[in-house]
Design a protein around this nucleic acid. Structure first.
Lengths: 341, 341
DNA sequence: TCTCTCCCTGCACGTTTGTTCAATCGGCTT
DNA sequence: AAGCCGATTGAACAAACGTGCAGGGAGAGA
């Protein structure tokens, strides 16, 4: 790949004739002045096709940002109710009820990736978990230029079969690329075999450095793991957990996990043995991040989602319409017994 | 015109089936999920044409906002230089050099209207001048919902032939409509005949109320008047000034006006007689507004623009490319003698 | 109840836009 | 200097889109 942009062949040259410059100008003419691509082609002395490509480039690289604001007086009733009941700012993604789970995930991830843009800024530490939701999201991120931001892996991804590095690092790299941020990997297994090993490891200075970063996150982004759903999450298929682990989780009444840390329906984590071997951040650490974005798709994750809400892990929720609807209906049923169980 | 939206026929009904809701959903599916209009039509159980119209509606009413960010590392060199030389944040509007003045004005106004959106917010007092530039702009404003904002007319518009009310009020109304803001008119002539009348009027309580509003503006928006350009500004054609006035302006070395307050090339206003009869805000008042947006198109306004810059009237400049280029070239010539004259 | 009017709908057409393909350009190697 | 390779271009085609138009439905007024 040859550098043909940013400063052009000769930095400091007279005519900074970069592709990005043209794209910027085309975007201005197209989106701000409503010219047709044909007209723009003439102004730029090129063909209409090239203008079409320039505009694609402009959108793909985040030069153009398209955002949607619901008028403040009518946020979708679902979002309104979720806000009232859970004190969480919700973004409901419209998806037809009959969509397949795969479609649904894909579309929520696409929307989430676009929405995410507005939360990302310069000089931020951004914690990122992994899993099928995050992976889908990473493939659709709308780039946004930032300075001095940092992507931090929230939990290890190694398992019995692979180091998980390829998978997780690819995912993180996409986040890093999209926002021009440095990437801090966390090269540990998802679960240690022995809690003692984890503790030892946690005392290592290189590990501490990463944990410190996690503790000072500005934004955390994660999905919800649902170990007992009919379609188990990625984490539960890849050889991360053994049969005995499942039984233990079941006994403990676990309904889900965030970054491989497990919790019950009431949001509690105490006494869940597996957590002492998990590598994700303790919820007290996670909750330090002022913004905690959770992306959820599919009703199978509903129990996990409500648990995470109970645990106060979420400040911003991106969720598909069907699941949001169930969430609200369910909350209605619970009214009064809300804090009782 | 019948109200068919916002709350629907029966406020509090079960299915808030408003046009805006559909538009919002369509916009989400189109811009956030990249569905084709055809696909959206199916999801919404309507025809593709209707979706096209819904999306138009969404854009026209500001539900969808499209903005363009130049990557921070390469702002157009022009904008960069203007920032350095004048401490003004510039937005250069690309316009081909061979465009007619009418085209140029129209295109700058269109871009300016779109760019303006990001400066407007709730709970603001927004001062608006008038003139051909502002008028063109008013016809293209991208709506944005705000609460409790207020549009304040900066200067009177009456003249010897009309009260100017139709013209100016239409202009202000468009601003008010676009941002859902109250409109405060200023029903006085552009220039009083007698300074004493103005002073008397200025003591009226109803006038004071308006002047107080002006003094607490958050944003001011104005063009530049250029009395001696070959194509004089609106103000100078409509019977506002008499021959003797022109001669006086010429004698005083006036290069332009902002909201009918005149100034010289160095930005000074002292001793310009006409100002004592003018109804626009004194520059000391104007400069109190933290954001002062100036929209300029056409090189004829260059002297006026440099004067306004000298006077420190501008914090944000929206200007066509050709004029921006001249501005920078001119500043280069002046280097060293910058503060000397 | 009927009618008038206005707005909304879907169709059909013309325009605008995205994408494929072959040709060309420019840099780098041999 | 010739040749290779990947990136970029414009033409042609196909898909997606905007809009004028006629038909239909809901509400206001007679």
């Amino acid at each position: 790949m040859v550098v043909t942009d940013v400063a052009g062949p000769a930095a400091g040259g007279e005519l900074p004739t970069g592709k990005t410059r043209d794209a910027l100008r085309a975007a201005h003419l197209y989106y701000l002045q409503d010219l047709t691509m044909d007209a723009i082609a003439k102004e730029l002395h090129t063909s209409r096709s090239s203008v079409s490509r320039l505009l694609s480039h402009a959108r793909a690289t985040g030069l153009v940002e398209i955002s949607i604001h619901s008028p403040l007086d009518l946020p979708s009733r679902l979002e309104q109710e979720i806000l009232e009941r859970h004190e969480v700012s919700a973004h409901v993604v419209p998806v037809p009820d009959h969509a397949s789970d795969v479609d649904r995930l894909e579309r929520v991830a696409l929307s989430a990736a676009r929405i995410l843009t507005r939360f990302i800024d310069s000089n931020q530490t951004i914690g990122v978990a992994w899993g099928s939701t995050m992976s889908a999201m990473s493939r659709h991120l709308a780039p946004k230029a930032t300075h001095n931001s940092e992507i931090v892996q929230l939990n290890g991804a190694g398992n019995l079969r692979t180091t998980g590095i390829l998978y997780a690092s690819e995912l993180l790299r996409r986040f890093g690329d999209a926002f021009g941020a440095r990437v801090q990997q966390f090269p540990v297994p998802a679960f240690f075999d022995d809690p003692a090993t984890k503790e030892a490891f946690w005392r290592e200075r290189s590990t501490r450095r990463l944990l410190d970063l996690q503790a000072s996150m500005d934004v955390a982004i994660f999905g919800i793991g649902s170990p007992f759903a009919e379609v188990p999450s990625h984490v539960y298929q890849g050889g991360y957990l053994e049969r005995a682990d499942y039984q233990a989780l079941s006994r403990d009444g676990v309904v889900g996990d965030v970054a491989t840390v497990f919790y019950r329906a009431d949001g509690s984590t105490d006494g869940i043995a597996l957590n002492s071997r998990a590598t994700g951040p303790d919820f007290t650490v996670l909750r330090r991040a002022p913004r905690r974005i959770c992306v959820v798709s599919g009703q199978a994750k509903l129990p996990g989602l409500t648990g995470a809400l109970e645990a106060g892990l979420i400040t911003d929720l991106i969720v598909d319409e069907g699941t949001a609807r169930r969430l609200v209906e369910r909350s209605v049923d619970d009214l009064g017994s809300d804090r009782a169980d």
